[in-house]
Amino acid sequence: MTMQDVADFFTSSIVHKWIIEQFWLFPLCETLHFIGLSFMFGALLVVDGRILGLCKFVSMKESMKFIPVAIAGFAVNLTTGYFFMTSDPNNYIYNYGFQWKMIMIVVAGINALWFWFGEHKQLLALADGEEAPFRAKVIALISILVWISVIILGRMIPYTDN
């Protein structure tokens, strides 16, 4: 399967036709993409902020309740991102900014899995005010930095045409 096959697959979908024909759909998706980003990044600031020691007196277990908010924000952005990609697959798929954005999202995903399977249980056992382990802090810092890079690369897409 070539890159062009992937692009053709998206072009032939009903969503492609829909987003091309409905002039309001693209701006709506853009707005939802920014709202989803804000919810996701805000929730990550609460969770990662607690791990990094920004508000240590907060219960770690309680701060973890913001993880579903981050996942919901990501789900909105994954859906709206699919709409963007489908609107003009030949542009997106060969775009360096887009390619790097996707790579960084995969890195963020691997980091999240590392967090969930490697540190989550240990963190839940922390008492209020107790410092998180160093490895968890590294994961939290990577999370913030990688998502900032995703925002940067996303904004660069219009300027990094191949």
């Binding site: 980003l37 805000g42 609460v46 907060v58 219960s59 309740k65 925002i151």
Partner: peptide, 29 residues
């Protein structure tokens, strides 16, 4: 790009604060 990073940060903090005050994750002060 700077505007997008700033937006995600300030909006993120504002939205999470409002969610908490509206009753989400009540265990967090």
């Amino acid at each position: 790009t700077s505007h997008a990073i700033g937006m995600a940060t300030v909006m993120g903090v504002a939205l999470m604060t409002c969610m908490r005050v509206m009753g989400y994750a009540k265990g967090v002060s």
